[in-house]
Design a protein around this nucleic acid. Sequence first.
DNA 1: TGCAAGCTATAACTTATAATTATAATAATA
DNA 2: TATTATTATAATTATAAGTTATAGCTTGCA
Lengths: 294, 294
Amino acid sequence: MELRHLTYLLSVVEEGSFTRAAEKLYVSQPALSQQIKQLEDELGTPVLDRAGRRVRLNAAGEIFVMHARRVFQELDEAKIALQELQELQRGSLRVGIVQTVNAYLIPPVVARFTEAYPLIQLEIEELAAGEIEQALREGLVQLGVSFIPPTEEGLEYEELFNEELVLVIGEKHAMANCVEIEVSKLNGFPLVLLPKSYCTRRLWEECSQKAGIQARVVVEMNTIGAILSTIRQTKAGTILPRLALQQPYSQGLIGVQLCNPTPRRTVGLLWRRNAYRCRASQVFSQFLNEVILP
Amino acid sequence: MELRHLTYLLSVVEEGSFTRAAEKLYVSQPALSQQIKQLEDELGTPVLDRAGRRVRLNAAGEIFVMHARRVFQELDEAKIALQELQELQRGSLRVGIVQTVNAYLIPPVVARFTEAYPLIQLEIEELAAGEIEQALREGLVQLGVSFIPPTEEGLEYEELFNEELVLVIGEKHAMANCVEIEVSKLNGFPLVLLPKSYCTRRLWEECSQKAGIQARVVVEMNTIGAILSTIRQTKAGTILPRLALQQPYSQGLIGVQLCNPTPRRTVGLLWRRNAYRCRASQVFSQFLNEVILP
DNA sequence: TGCAAGCTATAACTTATAATTATAATAATA
DNA sequence: TATTATTATAATTATAAGTTATAGCTTGCA
């Protein structure tokens, strides 16, 4: 049985005639007769009474047609639902984002998105870069905002922006007036840093190694807010992307540019290779780009 | 879109692989790929994420598959309903029956039928012969029990039995001892008869005309019970099929055979030509035959 | 009652399309 | 990096839907 059989039957019922139904369906009358016969053979019972001038449903036909109509109703509903999904009237989007970006770039994007598409279930997960890549591969998130290039295989990405890491210290710190400072000068400097599982931390490690120094890590903390609060109350500093200073917690703190080398990182969008990028994720990406490049 | 597309999609989803789904469907893998592609083209969106080793539904796919499953559920229900109809577990049967037959032959048939198939909605309508033929043509009843051959066109029939009309009189009537009586002897005989719209009455009119006599119709009554009660209390007689005397009302009455000519009538089953004779009507016919020919 | 018109079914044939085979392209695994 | 597993594509074959011609019934009208 195929939908064609149901379509044809409904048309015959509606027209009360094979000939007229065939005209409406733009097929020949014998084609229609054959298909109806096939249907009746498969159902094991006639569904139409061919009473000369008028063709009408018999008892079995009445029952079958009722269900056939529901079949098409169901398919119509499916098409409407897909349409709505296309128009972002439903569906969900899960995005994995690294802490530093999440803290100061994502709120305005989320605000715009939820206002524009209130019916989309948006889920933002703050994850470490490695967790994001893992979540993408497992399909736990559809989109990642993390550092590029990714370390794992099977992911595609697109650059969002490139930023430098700066030394963050209290504005009354002895070094607060420096325009820039060489990394090599930070040997033994007390730092409050993110754990080594964080990309930002690893970038710093790489950078300090290049400069041939060893900073003194007084404490590791895993949230930026906590680190900044600590810096504000001690002589220690921290290494963070400059944009972290846009946070509300950053009052009373300043960033000093590092050089020789200047640690930099590139943030981008990530997704699983070959995964269908749903409209919701496309729109989210677009909003993010608009916030970055005003 | 055809049901084939839905079947294939559901199979791919279930197996999580084109290759395995194709094996289960007994088609080649490329055939499957092509059909899924057709479906996606028609829906205007991909429904599957081909992520290398594993194939899975995307958001649009989840929605569509839900509806596709309901489509097959609907068709399953349709098949079950038709099955039940075939097995007389549901459905209805409307039968039009002439008074004389209804009065003494139908009750046992109805009893057997309703006991055997309690879920069938059986409707017995007592109608005049002409009304039965009309109701058959209009599809108001599926089966008729009436006199054959029918007067209207477009009806088919099958003989049930042939019976003679007799003169019914009280057992203490002067003529009660006659074995038979010639119609010509009934000139001026007082009779209580059915109205002229009834076939039995018309048969008698034809018969008396042939014999060249004119009976005296003292009163017309349209129910057999009333006629018999009247006969029991008067010197009048009536003309009815012999089987009418099997009724409970017939105590104290006897039937005298008529001859020259002997009025006879044939009772049969009637249905609309080319109409599908549903199982319920076939079973009803069978029961009726069994009651007549024990 | 017979004839003409209208409608559906059947048969033979044609066309469209689904399925197959062969093979390329791609991703996962060793 | 080679190999295996998996899906996509291209060309061909097979199937089945469609078409044309026509027969067989009904029905309506002369």
